[in-house]
Amino acid sequence: MDVFGVDIGGSGIKGAPVDVGRGELAEDRFKVLTPQPATPHAVADSVAEVVAHFGRPAGPVGVTFPGVVVGGTTRTAANVDGSWVGQDAAGLIGERLGAPVTVLNDADAAGLAEMRFGAGAGRRGTVLVLTFGTGIGSALFVDGTLVPNTELGHLELEGHDAETRASSRAREEEGLNWRHWARRVQRYLAHVERLFSPDLFVIGGGVSRKADKFLPLIEGVSAEIVPARLENNAGIVGAAMAAAAAAPGGAP
């Protein structure tokens, strides 16, 4: 069964049909730049452009969002326009696409995919999936069950919002080498470990493709640390999984 997934990020919006039984993209993903300013209607138009690249959606569409999402409504907005706060995102995007839409936090979507098909598959205990990109997203799982909307990228770290120090964007904007950036990530992981005592960290986002350049440099963290297997496609896959689950007769 192919279901469409779209991943809204602070810098890009990408999507593809997904084989939700296998956790794989059914076609190569298509990406457009996130509009600036990233207002609800502008982003909805970009989502429609991504979906239209593959034709009219034949079924439900899953969409990720960089912020807290409750019942399809966006409660916070990170790295997009503040007018998203209080927006019925599922209704807005669904009307634009002419299809049923499920909206969820972007890191939660990536986490769902990694826990079903990736590095967290079959793992019990406490697992934290962290996505490093424009910001830092987090998905917390306890014995395989998601605790939604944790948004741990906004914890305070050394007097700053953590993602302004340890995100992939911070590394690029400040021109940090891998060793310097790894020290920041290490301090962030140590802080999160003190709060949640996870058994496993799964490191995702676009930077997961280069995990060999920084994960071996991280020390002093007790939990196991592994790179995400689905890399930067996890959000698309997880969005499609959520849409399939929300459809009538969908799997939990």
Score class of each variant (00 low, 15 high):
G15I: 07
G15M: 05
A16D: 05
V18L: 03
V18F: 08
D19R: 11
R22Y: 07
R22C: 14
G23T: 04
E24N: 06
E24R: 15
A26F: 06
E27D: 04
R29G: 14
P37G: 14
A38F: 06
T39V: 08
T39S: 11
P40H: 06
P40Y: 03
P40N: 05
A42E: 08
V43F: 11
D45C: 03
S46Y: 07
S46R: 04
V47N: 07
E49S: 15
A52I: 06
P57E: 06
G59M: 04
G62I: 08
F65E: 10
F65W: 13
F65A: 14
G67I: 05
G67K: 02
V68W: 12
V70T: 11
T73N: 14
T74I: 10
A77V: 07
A78I: 15
N79I: 13
N79S: 10
V80P: 14
D81G: 01
G82T: 12
W84D: 05
W84G: 06
V85T: 08
Q87S: 12
A89W: 07
I93P: 05
G94H: 01
L97Q: 00
A99E: 00
A99G: 00
P100I: 10
P100A: 01
T102P: 04
V103D: 11
V103N: 10
L104A: 14
L104R: 13
A107Y: 10
A109L: 04
G111E: 02
G111I: 02
A113K: 06
M115V: 09
R116T: 11
F117V: 01
F117R: 00
R124M: 07
T126I: 11
L128P: 11
L130Q: 08
F132S: 10
T134V: 14
G137Q: 09
G137D: 03
G137N: 10
S138Y: 02
A139M: 02
V142M: 08
V142L: 15
D143E: 13
G144R: 02
N149V: 09
L152M: 15
L157N: 01
E158T: 11
G159K: 14
